[in-house]
Design a protein around this nucleic acid. Structure first.
Lengths: 210, 210
DNA sequence: CGAAGAACTTACAGCAACTGCATCATTACC
DNA sequence: GGTAATGATGCAGTTGCTGTAAGTTCTTCG
């Protein structure tokens, strides 16, 4: 890697770090791209040369997360099912989502309409990638793959929202982690066994009373 | 209703109709709000007085759709399960999504990043509303309600995407409708019975080979 | 080594979505 | 018919984002 690429990488991380620092201090919506550029000692245009949009300044690890998702499936243990592998991968992230520092991220996203909208776009992208991976891995129909991917990503997203809201409510630490893990297990249970004949009785086949 | 409210309604529909006509002709992204305002014989500011954003000019029936979703559950037939009621409600819309005119809508959404992003926001809103309705109707836990809602909305969205893509591929008419209905039934099957131990065998428990 | 050329940055002008404010026209109410 | 509420308008301004042309830095190759 030449000097040019090195400087590029430095510039990129400098911009992203500066942006995150400003966002954390004053909220995503109350920071302009021009301010980020100035604080990073770079022109506004350069920011947009590196990042497709202002939101991408925040969600700049999406590619890696996406790769991790695919890897969790592809590199799953022998005889381990895809759902189990995904659950294990998710469980590993529970600790981070229940750390004290996570509340800052949570607040940032929860307070910004723009970030929440962008998050949904990321989820849609994950869903498409996951569908491709599932079809490739299982050889099932396109429909099945897409529906399955949609179900899985839907659970992941909902779960992420719940984790954020709990972090905002100040629930962190080991007890919160245990609770989150238990809820994740429950969510995967529903994913695996389905909603049953939802509502045919007072409760759906597998739903727990409050 | 007084004269003032009547004129308001007229203005609103005039703006929305004009906007849709222009969007259909030239695509969502290539029409400015100023053009819509001028074509509707109204100031640009007035457009924003009626519609919160440019995208809302297109998705202006969301409230009604949301109400219909809740109504489909609340007013379901006695002894009919929620999933069956929702499936029935969805099946009723298959015909429209397989009509020749639907391709125009499909193209409009598919060609615009902004509209696809907005669509996701709408889905997220549906998910929240559906979760509330489910919890109210079934008395289950908050987690179960939200996960179930996420699963259901995920399927609906994915299904809508598929319908759009088929419309764009020129597949309409009775045959396409039958196919879409069959696929919807299949999607609800997965929703009801779950993904099984996905991937533990060559195929997931319930997934069909291609 | 030095010049050609590629790649990156910058300033600048500009577009379009969207907002706040003061003002004007219309409607509702008495 | 006069007054108060309400909606429409014009206008200036903010912000995200883009195109272009010019300048600067790095690479590469003769």
């Amino acid at each position: 890697m030449g000097l040019r690429d090195l400087k590029k990488q430095q510039t990129r991380t400098a911009i992203a770090d500066t942006a995150l620092r400003l966002f954390m201090k004053r909220g995503f919506d109350h920071v302009t791209v021009a301010e980020v550029a100035e604080a990073a000692g770079v022109s506004e245009k350069t920011v947009f040369n590196y990042f497709h949009s202002k939101e991408d300044l925040f969600f700049d690890e999406v590619d890696e997360r996406e790769a991790a998702l695919v890897a969790a499936i592809r590199d799953r243990r022998p005889e381990e099912s895809i759902l189990v592998a995904l659950r294990r991968s998710q469980l590993a992230g529970c600790g981070r989502m229940c750390s004290a520092g996570f509340a800052g991220f949570a607040r940032l996203i929860e307070e910004s309409q723009a970030l929440r909208a962008k998050e949904l776009e990321v989820m849609a992208r994950f869903s498409a990638t996951l569908a491709d991976t599932l079809q490739d891995e299982l050889g099932c129909t396109d429909l099945d793959a897409r529906v399955a991917a949609s179900l899985i990503v839907g659970v992941h997203w909902q779960f992420f929202v719940i984790a954020r809201q709990r972090a905002l409510a100040g629930r962190h630490g080991p007890a919160a982690t245990r609770r989150l893990r238990a809820d994740l297990a429950r969510a995967y249970e529903l994913l695996e066994s389905g909603l049953g004949d939802l509502g045919s009785r007072k409760l759906g086949a597998d739903l727990q009373p409050a």
